[in-house]
């Protein structure tokens, strides 16, 4: 079976600095993996590289998505092919209402996938339904995207977009940070609702708490630019207890 995502020996340089130095990871459809690691270890670099942000130079290795070279594609092509990045820091776009943005985005992706665009009424209904489940209020849909949204509101809005875009590969970069206890449950519920045999997820997180709600199949530790350890859910507990010291010391 072709893996959903196959990263081999990935080296990424950003702003003249080598950040990823030989990262390898395989994610199959139906699986959920978590990536944990110290601040600055390159987790966001990995997610942005996979999503196609300019300036992240791949100097060695590569990444294949469903057998295709992911790194060759434009960011919008990746989205159309089913790659979704939930940003650690979602960007605000003054002047574009959340609802308008959702419609533009979903219809762009549907067009690219050869599916019919949503009609206005049907789309409104769909968004309201999904938004309500994630605690995204009607007023947020009217406001400019992410503008003056609280940290938690931004993260809910990311998951709302994910639910509407129905991606195959979900890269969630610290979607749990900034969420209060109830919001974490709501967002975890939204993530769990999307777990499916044809879909895979990479959850970047610092906290065991999210992983209590969304049980991962594997946990990877990213340190010094590569995956230094892979284990089961119990690894999260060990990290919680003893930190990253032993990975940083190892040469």
């Amino acid at each position: 079976m072709t893996p959903l995502l196959d990263i081999t020996n990935l080296h990424v340089r950003y702003q003249g600095k080598d950040i990823l130095k030989g990262l390898s990871l395989t994610l199959n459809a139906g699986e959920v993996h978590a990536i944990m690691g110290p601040n600055g270890s390159g987790k966001s670099t990995l997610s942005l590289t996979l999503a196609g942000r300019e300036g992240y130079a791949v100097t060695q290795g590569g990444a294949r998505y469903r057998g295709k070279n992911l790194l060759d594609m434009e960011p919008e092509e990746r989205a159309a092919e089913g790659v979704f990045l939930g940003f650690q820091h979602p960007v605000d776009i003054p002047g574009v209402s959340t609802m308008n943005f959702l419609k533009t985005s979903v219809n762009a992706v549907r067009r690219a996938r050869g599916e019919a665009e949503h009609d206005a009424v049907g789309f409104l209904k769909l968004v309201r339904e999904k938004a309500a489940a994630l605690g995204v209020g009607e007023d947020m849909l009217k406001r400019s995207l992410n503008r003056d949204f609280s940290g938690g509101e931004k993260k809910r809005c990311e998951i709302l977009q994910m639910a509407l875009l129905e991606p195959r590969l979900c890269l969630l970069d610290e979607t749990d940070s900034g969420l209060d206890i109830d919001a974490l449950k709501t967002v975890a519920g939204g993530i769990n609702a999307l777990r499916a045999p044809h879909r895979g997820m990479l959850l970047i997180t610092h906290y065991q708490r999210l992983l209590g709600h969304v049980r991962p199949d594997k946990i990877h530790v990213l340190a010094r630019g590569r995956i230094v350890e892979t284990g089961g859910p119990e690894l999260a507990e060990e990290l919680e207890a003893s930190g990253y010291a032993r990975f940083l010391k190892a040469a």
Partner: peptide, 29 residues
Amino acid sequence: DEEALFYMQSRGIRRDAAEALLVSAFAAD
């Protein structure tokens, strides 16, 4: 804003459409 453009592209919006949207948003705002 490059970051905003990338954000939109990552949501499937083509680069040229994202630029046009940002320009009209600048005025709409």
